[in-house]
């Protein structure tokens, strides 16, 4: 464990908690893409099946349980409890265009052709594009609530910090996982446009609104 991975995990945890609290407190999921949240629930489910087979550490196990629990709770709030506030018209990204290619790639390019490894690889590839429905929705509505931009910033920062963690681990431990690194680079690049808007607008107190 190094400082970059720790702060990456804390940033990810913050993102998940911010979103859950935003929906719970405002009793509304306006502006939130339910499709992205379903993809994240799939990412955690397929990646953390090793909860059933191996124990790494209390930290590892508890964080995985929290991620899975919060992601399913968020999906439940969006599609069940506060479904009346769900903006289905703007959440129209075709996720099958993500899941099918990612599934195919996971079967073709992986470290080991075993079920757990292919599911893990699928989860890594899916996570790199899981935010697209949310970014697409913001481009369609042309704006995002400030709390949603903080959620997105933490979500994007987490994998950026993981990239630094992988540089650190390569340099100090001689370890690298090309699949995780390439997917992590793609994932972080997808946030660049948002990062620019976040820094130039939200951090200056303005509302994030895209030129419609």
């Amino acid at each position: 464990m190094n400082i970059f991975r720790l702060f990456g995990d804390l940033s990810h945890l913050a993102a998940i908690i911010i979103l859950l609290l935003k929906i719970w407190k405002s009793r509304s999921c306006a502006g939130i893409s339910g499709k992205s949240q379903i993809l994240f629930a799939i990412v955690f489910t397929t990646r953390y099946l090793d909860l059933l087979t191996s124990f790494i550490s209390l930290y590892n196990t508890s964080m995985k349980m929290i991620y899975i629990g919060c992601s399913y709770a968020t999906v439940y709030l969006i599609y069940a409890k506060f479904r009346a506030t769900y903006d289905g018209n703007h959440d129209s990204f075709r996720v099958e265009f993500l899941i099918v290619p990612v599934g195919g790639l996971a079967v073709l390019i992986n470290h080991d052709f075993s079920l757990l490894e292919i599911l893990w690889t699928f989860s890594i590839y899916l996570e790199s594009v899981a935010i697209l429905p949310q970014l697409f929705m913001i481009s369609k509505t042309g704006e995002a609530e400030t709390i949603t931009t903080h959620y997105l910033f933490c979500q994007g920062l987490y994998r950026a910090l993981y990239l630094i963690n992988w540089i650190w681990r390569f340099y100090f431990e001689g370890f690298f996982d090309m699949i995780a690194i390439v997917a992590g680079v793609v994932q972080t690049i997808l946030y660049c446009d948002f990062f620019y808007l976040y820094v130039t607008k939200v951090l200056k107190g303005k509302k994030l609104s895209l030129p419609a």
Partner: peptide, 10 residues
């Protein structure tokens, strides 16, 4: 293999 140790990451 190297990928095993990336399983200790979240």
């Amino acid at each position: 293999t190297d990928s095993q140790s990336s399983k200790d990451e979240l």
